[in-house]
């Protein structure tokens, strides 16, 4: 799908119909609305540091729709749309970004990990989970994410290398949003593409337009279909329209003109144009959806804000048992009223 929402119908995946496209588009809108809400909460001091996903929604929604229920999701920290599509409770998602561990608690059957802040360190976990699937002869694949900056880390290569040697059902998506905080993609590697890093590990690799939801969808679907034969590395070329996190000021290192050029390639607008062209979407639907989603988001925020942290939960989830020495520290803090 190009920037104006035109598609080459011969490339459209057979299992994508209009209804599915509408559903995907709604998730894009929800992701973007929630993103804006948490950013706003952070600016009001009601959320902790937040990493917006603005401009990268096609990667997350395209990949999430390509996955089967049994496939497993190993994030870093920006795959908000993936959490939402896969049914992570929105209030818990908000809670996480309010800086509360209880928001990182994984619901049963979610088939995914918690947020991983140190970039690329989660990819070996993906390899290990993929090993477990293969070992147990389970028909399931693991989908991991890493940024362009993260591909410079050793764990990125170590995990791809393991996955190649053991032919693991591991799919790694490089979410190449052009910026690792202040440093451009050209500062990460002299390699022409990030996808080609898979060649050194002897695994399949492909580069797609990360602002084209259908391209991401197809690449992930193909990789899942091939997962029993081994891993795939997918470079999704996209752009971070917003800041790295709320503590970052992108005007220090890039121009408005750079950003404007990518705004024209907005991944959400092009899906809307496509659907509108097919008479599957109009402004009234957009308005109605926005209202419904805002309600959903407000409810989630209200629930998250009602949460009261219990300091005991810090102590009681460190080991499978409570060591006597740790218990002493917990009891001492409580009896001295440090938590009141």
């Amino acid at each position: 799908m190009d920037e104006n929402g035109n598609i080459d119908a011969s490339l459209l995946p057979g299992d994508v119909d209009d209804a599915k496209m509408v559903s995907m588009y709604k998730y894009m809108l929800l992701t973007r609305a929630l993103d804006a809400k948490i950013l706003s909460l952070q600016r009001q001091g009601r959320a902790a540091t937040y990493a917006p996903s603005l401009g990268e929604e096609a990667v997350h929604i395209g990949a999430a729709f390509a996955m089967r229920k049994q496939d497993f999701f190993v994030p870093n920290f920006r795959q908000h749309g993936m959490y939402i599509v896969r049914g992570f409770p929105l209030d818990r998602f908000v809670l996480y970004w309010k800086g509360v561990e209880e928001g990182d608690a994984i619901p049963k059957g979610f088939n995914g990990l918690s947020v991983s802040v140190p970039v690329s360190t989660q990819i070996p976990h993906g390899a290990g989970i993929a090993y477990a699937f293969k070992y147990r002869k389970q028909d399931a694949a693991v989908l991991t994410f890493v940024g362009d900056g993260g591909t410079s880390e050793g764990d990125f290569y170590e995990a791809l290398n393991f996955a190649g040697v053991f032919k693991l059902p591991l799919i790694t998506i490089i979410e190449n949003n052009q910026w690792a905080i202040s440093q451009p993609r050209s500062r990460q590697t002299a390699a022409k593409t990030l996808a080609q890093k898979g060649i050194a590990a002897g695994i399949s690799c492909v580069q797609v337009d990360g602002n084209d939801m259908l391209a991401v969808y197809k690449a992930v679907r193909d990789a899942i279909a091939n997962a029993k034969n081994g891993p795939t590395l997918i470079e999704a070329v996209t752009y971070r329209l917003s800041m790295h996190t709320t503590s970052d000021d992108p005007t220090k290192y890039r121009t408005d003109a750079d950003v404007a050029a990518w705004q024209k390639k907005d991944p959400v607008a092009r899906v809307k144009a496509y659907l509108a062209g097919k008479k599957q979407w109009d402004d009234a639907m957009e308005q109605k959806t926005a209202e419904e989603q805002q309600k959903q988001i407000d409810d989630a925020v209200a629930k998250a804000e009602a949460f009261k942290p219990d300091p005991r939960s810090m102590f009681e989830n460190v080991y499978s048992f409570m060591p006597e020495v740790l218990k002493q520290e917990e009891d001492a803090a409580e009896s001295a009223n440090f938590w009141r």
Partner: peptide, 26 residues
Amino acid sequence: EDRVIDTPLAESGITGTAIGMALAGL
């Protein structure tokens, strides 16, 4: 060989992969 696994030479990879295995119930 699938239960006593000779791995590539990479300590972080070994440990990170083991963590993933453990998260998946091994």
